[in-house]
C-alpha cells in the first residue's frame, strides 16, 4: 500500500502560489536561524527545538489548508505555526516569554497555539497531537464543512500509543485526517532506523487500512503533491492518509545538543538537498519566477524577523496576575 513518489511536475501552483510558498519557507528558515543565534546569547529562556531543514513539510502541507482546517504540532513546532498563519512577531515574543506573545508568554516555544488560525498548538508531549486531530476531523465531518485535520508528528511519536490509537480511530471513523510523520532520523539522539520496527513509518498505514506515502522532505513539490492528494481525498470523504516525510534537521534536537550521535549528514543536506535552494533553482530554471522576485522576498523576510526580535526584546514580561488568569473559564 505504501508508495514512494518521484519528483512531480510543478503542479497547479501559479506564480503567486509559488511565491507564497517560498515566503513561508524562507520565513521559517530565517526565524529559526535567528532563534538559534539569539538563544546562544542566553536571552531566550527554556528549551527551543528548531525546524530548519524541514520547511518543505509544513509549507507543502499547509499550503493546501484554509480556515476550516486545523493542525496539531510538536515540540519542533515553529515551522507549523508559521505555515498555518500564526504571526511570527507574536511567536517570537512568545519564545522570549513575553506578555505580547501568542499565548501571553504562558506557552513558550513548545506550546505556541493560535486557535483562531486553526493551530491547536505545538506540544511538549511527544504524541500529544494526533488524538486532538481526530477530534477536529470528527467535528469537521459532523459539521459537513469539508474541513480536514492534520497531525504533524515525528519519528519518535510514531512509536507512541496515542499516535497508533489515533491512526486506528481515524480509519474506523473514516475521518478527514492526515497524519504527517516527519522523520528527521532521530528522536532526540535515538536513530529512527533503530527505533521504528519497520523499514518505513508509512508502512504502518497498511495495518490501519489507509494509504501510506513516503516523500522526499527536502522537495517542496513532492510534499505539496502528496499532501494535495491526501487532503483532496479527505475532503471528499475518502478518509485518512499517513504521509511519511523524510529529511534531516539542521540543528540539534534542542539548542545546546552536542549531536555526538550524528556526523556529516547536516553539511551534506545543507549543501546538496536544501529545500530552499532546490525550490529557487527549480522555479527560476523553469522560468516560473524571477530570481529578483525571490530576492525581494528574502529582504522582506529579513526585515520582518528583525522587527520581531526587536519587538520581542522590548515587550513586557507577564506578571503574577497573568499567572493566575485563565486557569478556569469562570471562578
Amino acid at each position: 500500500m505504501t508508495e514512494t513518489l518521484s519528483t512531480p511536475a510543478a503542479g497547479e501552483l501559479n506564480a503567486e502560489g509559488l511565491l507564497d510558498a517560498y515566503r513561508t519557507m524562507r520565513t521559517i528558515r530565517v526565524f529559526e536561524e535567528r532563534v538559534h543565534d539569539e538563544f546562544a546569547t542566553g536571552e531566550i529562556p527554556g528549551f527551543v527545538h528548531l525546524y530548519a531543514g524541514e520547511e518543505a513539510s509544513a509549507t507543502g502541507v499547509c499550503s493546501h489548508l484554509d480556515a476550516r482546517d486545523s493542525i496539531a504540532s510538536t515540540h519542533r513546532g515553529h515551522g507549523h505555526c508559521i505555515a498555518k498563519g500564526v504571526d511570527p512577531v507574536e511567536m517570537m515574543a512568545e519564545i522570549y516569554g513575553k506578555r505580547t506573545g501568542s499565548c501571553h508568554g504562558k506557552g513558550g516555544s513548545m506550546h505556541i497555539a493560535d486557535l483562531s488560525k486553526g493551530m491547536l498548538g505545538a506540544n511538549g508531549i511527544v504524541g500529544g497531537g494526533p488524538p486532538l486531530i481526530c477530534g477536529t476531523a470528527l467535528a469537521a465531518k459532523q459539521q459537513n464543512n469539508g474541513g480536514v485535520g492534520v497531525a504533524f508528528f515525528g519519528d519518535g511519536a510514531s512509536n507512541q500509543g496515542t499516535t497508533l490509537e489515533s491512526l486506528n480511530l481515524a480509519s474506523v471513523w473514516n475521518l478527514p485526517a492526515i497524519f504527517v510523520a516527519e522523520n528527521n532520523g532521530y528522536a532526540e539522539a535515538t536513530a529512527s532506523t533503530w527505533s521504528v520496527a519497520a523499514d518505513n513509518i508509512a508502512d504502518r498505514a497498511a495495518g490501519f487500512g489507509m494509504p501510506g506515502v513516503i516523500v522526499d522532505g527536502f522537495d517542496f513539490f513532492a510534499v505539496h503533491e502528496a499532501a494535495g492528494e491526501a487532503i483532496s481525498r479527505a475532503r471528499e470523504g475518502g478518509g485518512p492518509t499517513l504521509i511519511e516525510v523524510k529529511f534531516t534537521r539542521y540543528f540539534g534536537h534542542f539548542e545546546g545538543d552536542q549531536q555526538a550521535y550524528r556526523a556529516d549528514e547536516v553539511a551534506n543536506a545543507r549543501d546538496k538537498l536544501d529545500c530552499l535552494k532546490r525550490f529557487r533553482a527549480r522555479v527560476t530554471e523553469s522560468g516560473q519566477l524571477e530570481s529578483s522576485a525571490l530576492d525581494t522576498v528574502d529582504s522582506e523576510v529579513a526585515a520582518l524577523i528583525e522587527s520581531a526580535v526587536t519587538e520581542a526584546k522590548a515587550a513586557p514580561k507577564p506578571t503574577g496576575v497573568d499567572l493566575e488568569t485563565d486557569v478556569y473559564v469562570s471562578y
Binding site: P131, L132, G135, T162
Partner: peptide, 13 residues
Amino acid sequence: SGIIGTAIGLAVR
C-alpha cells in the same frame, strides 16, 4: 487517550 484527545478536538470546534 484517543477518546479524550478526540473530545478535546471536538470541543475546540
